[in-house]
């Protein structure tokens, strides 16, 4: 019985720790499927977090906060798109620079917005929503069906993204752009417009990760609160083989390992704690090797497309 409680705990922790990574990873999948790397996820999480905190702080409404966060993400995505598509900056350099820029900008703005309270200004957030009936299931119920609304949003978006990317016409076009932009262009697919669309959505999804941290978890903005989740998301994209569902599963797997390592710390306090902290990374590596994930990245990811280049 105790073990079931433990399992329920770990599952609830999985959802909490995995959700932000999953949002960012979804964003990464959509960008990479359109042929653009989004290394700026880490910074965009921060942008979303600040937008959400500021919006909720100003209006007292978590929903408006969510909207503000998403807008910040869209804008940062458009900017990254401008760098990658229009200016054709190396996408890795552009992403790294965006991370630097957004880390600084969010810190600067949070000090302007929250003033002396910076780092401690509490904002309105979402509360947990219990889904009737389902939340009464033992073990699974309390852990998975009484989460915050953004967790359900994640599941919805993941399914939607899968459908859009894999089943819809536009998704097919998008994937074609990621595989072979020239062929797609010749077939009349609006390459650049789709890429801008994808990279903006990507930014908005990463921003949702930040909004989740602020509005569902801790109700404050803190500088650098993304704490590397954007980079883990990059790994989740690949571990999930560039599929929206796969990436979410990979992110949740990572969250599971992270949640489990806290439990393990208690059961064996004599083992150096660093061993537990590296567990999620090691587990992901092992999963990668066992699944034998062959490199199956979109063929043209990272290569700027130039119409005049023959």
């Amino acid at each position: 019985m105790v073990d079931l409680v433990l399992l329920g705990d770990v599952l609830a922790g999985t959802a909490r720790l995995g959700t932000p990574i999953a949002f960012a990873a979804l964003g990464g999948v959509i960008a990479e499927r359109s042929g653009l790397y989004n290394i700026g996820l880490e910074g965009q999480i921060l942008a979303g977090a600040l937008g959400a905190a500021a919006g909720s702080f100003a209006t007292g409404s978590a929903l408006i906060g969510l909207g503000c966060g998403v807008i910040c993400g869209l804008v940062s995505g458009l900017f990254l798109g401008y760098m990658s598509i229009r200016l054709r900056i190396n996408q890795l350099v552009g992403g790294i620079a965006l991370n630097l820029l957004l880390a600084g900008l969010t810190a600067f703005l949070s000090r302007q917005i929250f003033g002396a309270q910076a780092g401690g200004a509490r904002v309105e957030g979402f509360t947990q929503v219990r889904i009737p009936l389902l939340s009464d299931i033992p073990v699974l119920g309390p852990s998975l069906f009484s989460q915050d609304p953004l967790f359900y949003l994640l599941i919805g978006i993941a399914v939607l993204a899968w459908y859009w990317l894999m089943k819809s016409h536009k998704g097919l076009d998008l994937r074609a752009v990621g595989e072979n932009p020239k062929a797609a262009d010749l077939a009349g697919v609006p390459v650049f417009r789709l890429q801008y669309l994808a990279i903006s959505i990507s930014g908005a999804l990463a921003a949702l990760a930040g909004a989740h941290l602020v509005l569902s978890q801790v109700y404050v903005f803190a500088e650098g609160m993304s704490a590397g989740k954007g980079f883990i998301a990059l790994a989740a994209i690949i571990l999930g083989r560039w599929s929206p569902i796969g990436a979410v599963c990979a992110a949740l797997f990572f969250g599971f390992c992270d949640a489990a390592q806290f439990k393990l710390q208690f059961s064996s306090p004599e083992v150096p704690y660093q061993l537990f902290l590296i567990l999620p990374y090691i587990a992901s590596l092992i999963a990668l090797v066992i699944l034998g994930a062959k490199a199956s990245a979109p063929a043209s990811v990272g290569l700027p497309y130039d119409r005049e280049h023959r």
Partner: peptide, 22 residues
């Protein structure tokens, strides 16, 4: 100058110089 502003300036410089080198 606030260190956060400096980070922004660093990021901007990398972006613009990278754009110029394309």
């Amino acid at each position: 100058v606030d260190s956060s502003v400096i980070e922004v300036v660093e990021g901007l410089v990398v972006v613009f110089v990278a754009a110029a080198l394309v």
